[in-house]
Design a protein around this nucleic acid. Structure first.
Lengths: 362, 362
DNA sequence: TTGAAAGCGATACCAG
DNA sequence: CTGGTATCGCTTTCAA
């Protein structure tokens, strides 16, 4: 039963296997593989040969434990489907892999319990940063909850990044990457108003979602600036989905309310709204103008092409990763380019073909 | 300067910190936390109290090294955007987190180099399984390449799962989760043919992509079965995107070729095609019938609603994860429910509103 | 330049 | 039930 010395060991090859077979020390193998230490060409050759023979790869866990380790970002999102998420994720993952970082993904399904569990799980994994994506539900404890996450992660040597969410108040170790949500809505609504629209159906999204609130506020401010009334009965909250846009417009049409334009909370909602209008025999933009928000590919694929607010999702992802990467480089007590930092990217209206002055409508 | 014994240690708390502060052994703390060993209520209470005070979480790397460790699946995909991916990912991630597994995501950007690098990276991470997603480019070395991956991963105690890709030939330790791609195309084409269409424009996708090849073959077989000619000039290859659908139809229209229906390789391509038809003043389905493939949400959001082939993407993700999970449970030398296994899920035509007999067209 | 040995943090086996 | 302790695979001083 003394088959322990056999080369047919169980499990993957270890650094020791490589060392023995190459007739060198484990330290040397480690040095060759890390590449951040001077080694003789001969040694390198011998080691690499064995590495190839054994198809050896370093055990990342052991490496992490010992000090080295691949930096890792974790992206936490409510729902993995949804174009906006995909683009932020693309930005994060792209920037991460560019630096040799790993990307983890977890979904919370709108469940605070799961969110907590995931943050802790990521803490266990020793991730370099945790990126929380997408609008947050504006419950009372949001600030406390996030502050707790931030401190927990910070204490574990990790860092919290909020993307597309409201920043944290006070001295909390977290970075926020946001976009000018309200400004975009203000500009979009202004576009409609300046075209002459006065009766506008507003479908901001879920009432409790911070992004929806911001978009609604932006619109309201624009109306005020134009001195145009903003009747509450023209605002219909609901999920950020096609179905909601469809149903909301159907019901408003059924009630007989008059409107010349629709300001949708997202492009997908706008698509649903357009569908409903079409079914009702109404043309866009001849009879009703429609605008969206997000500028996902769908917007330019609709007929007519949808005028909307461009949100730089992918760039937000890149910026988020860069923020934590820089922070890491800068390391130590140097200027901590991130703590409590609030980066805001711009939004802008993309004018396409779904808006027309009401004079020329119906 | 002797603040080393202070509780304000550097870095996160370790199991030893907890043990000391609770006045118990590290072994006991480990037992309480693992929960898979009998401990007294008193001990548990004391330990948990300290755990909360210190906001302690176990170091996943150390745990993995020592034997325990969270099972992890890695999803490798060409491009992270794209609805089909999102749904498979949802299936995998959902099934994974249900079991407490972690999900890693990496993108290859169609680059074989990066694919290799990622597989190795995952091997280092000691992931339980690597899921390769999406059609593969049918180059000569595909089989060899994948076989190599499979063996590498297998030797490292991991497992390769191919989703939506052709299975591996020979005795290779990999699992394939596929769908009846060709069958779906056959059925879809038959649907068009039985409606009376004879001149059909086919936009299968990229010529080198296995999924596109399968869809094209399915269509061809259907035409043969109906004794209808399948002219090469009615087949236009191109990317799986909106733009391609748009351009292809525009150019065919410009050339003056006649057709009464379009068989698109994906729903997105179909959407582009519909856009081009509309621009040309052609109505769907009155003038031209259009069908897609995939059945992503977009399909039912188009006007008219798109008839297409339903592919159970999310279920494929779930099945893929279940396969590796079962394999793991069954463990050891027991029946290895996975090696070389090839699971094929069904597809079916979803009839909506984009097809009409040609007699009633134009 | 290279080798020997001390941890990194947690698990699990072996005593008590 | 609870406490020591060897061990996992690798990195990194400290010597040679």
């Amino acid at each position: 039963m003394s088959q322990r010395k056999a080369s047919a060991d169980a499990g993957p090859a270890t650094i020791r296997d490589v060392a023995e077979r190459a007739g060198v020390s484990v330290a040397s193998v480690s040095r060759v593989l890390s590449g951040n230490y001077p080694v003789s060409d001969d040694l390198r050759r011998r080691v690499m040969k064995v590495v190839r023979e054994l198809d050896y790869v370093t055990n990342a866990h052991a490496r992490s434990l010992a000090g080295g380790g691949t930096p890792t970002v974790a992206i936490l999102i409510n729902h993995i489907t949804g174009a906006a998420f995909a683009h932020v994720a693309k930005g994060v993952e792209g920037a991460a892999s560019l630096r040799g970082w790993l990307t983890l993904v977890g979904t919370t399904g709108d469940d605070p319990e799961r969110e907590l569990a995931l943050v802790n799980l990521m803490r266990q994994q020793g991730v370099t940063a945790v990126v929380l994506l997408g609008g947050a539900y504006d419950f009372e404890e949001y600030q406390l909850r996030m502050a707790r996450f931030a401190r927990s992660l910070d204490a574990a040597g990790s860092h919290l990044v909020l993307v597309g969410r409201p920043p944290l108040e006070g001295d909390v170790p977290a970075t926020t990457v946001d976009y000018d949500n309200e400004g975009g809505a203000y500009a979009m609504a202004s576009h409609l108003l300046s075209a002459g629209h006065r009766r506008v159906l507003v479908l901001p999204g879920p009432a409790e979602l911070t992004t929806a609130q911001g978009r609604l506020n932006g619109a309201r401010r624009a109306f005020e600036a134009y001195g145009v009334p903003f009747p509450p009965d023209m605002v219909h909250h609901g999920p950020y989905d096609f179905e909601h846009g469809l149903r909301a417009v159907e019901s408003v049409l059924r009630e007989g309310s008059r409107f010349t334009a629709i300001l949708a909370g997202t492009d997908v909602v706008a698509a649903g709204a357009m569908q409903a209008l079409r079914s009702a025999g109404l043309r866009v933009p001849e009879d009703v103008s429609v605008v969206g928000y997000d500028d996902i590919p769908l917007a330019s694929q609709l007929t007519p092409k949808l005028s909307t607010v461009h949100v730089p999702y992918e760039e937000m992802g890149r910026v988020a990763l860069r923020a934590v990467a820089d922070r890491r480089e800068g390391g130590g007590t140097g200027r901590r380019g991130g703590d409590g930092a609030h980066l805001i990217l711009g939004t802008h209206v993309v004018v396409r073909q779904s808006v027309r002055p009401p004079e020329r409508q119906g």
